[in-house]
Amino acid sequence: MIELVKTILFFIGMGLVGLGAVFDLIGALGLLRFPNFFVRLHAATIGAIGGAVYPLIGVALMAPSLESFGQYRWYLMGGAIITALFIVLAAPTGSHALARATHRAKVVPVEPKVVDHLEEDRG
């Protein structure tokens, strides 16, 4: 029973790792293709969450089945989980800090845009 659960988790983990690799490539492409810093932030989010957090969770799910790691497979799993947790906390905060500083210092214009309420409210 436990073996079956482990195997299912292993295949889910493999799926997540593959998905993460694809999202990583898409995020990189988006970072290259998008026209402006503020739009590129969205592509960077794909790179950070889809490209890093999903594969890390996938590795954590794969870890219990890797028998040749012995005792240390829990070390692998724990490292993956804590890294994923940290990236979930840190990546959006970094994006927000960069976006706010860039908008305040007017390093790059918000172009193209439909509307910019922040500029209006700040006057």
Binding site: L89, A90, T93, A97, R100
Partner: peptide
């Protein structure tokens, strides 16, 4: 300092950083 979000997340991250 920076905005409220950054402040709170930084304070939470202290715990992670010290444990790690």
């Amino acid at each position: 300092g920076l905005s409220l979000i950054v402040k709170l997340i930084t304070r939470i991250n202290f715990v992670v950083i010290i444990a790690v």
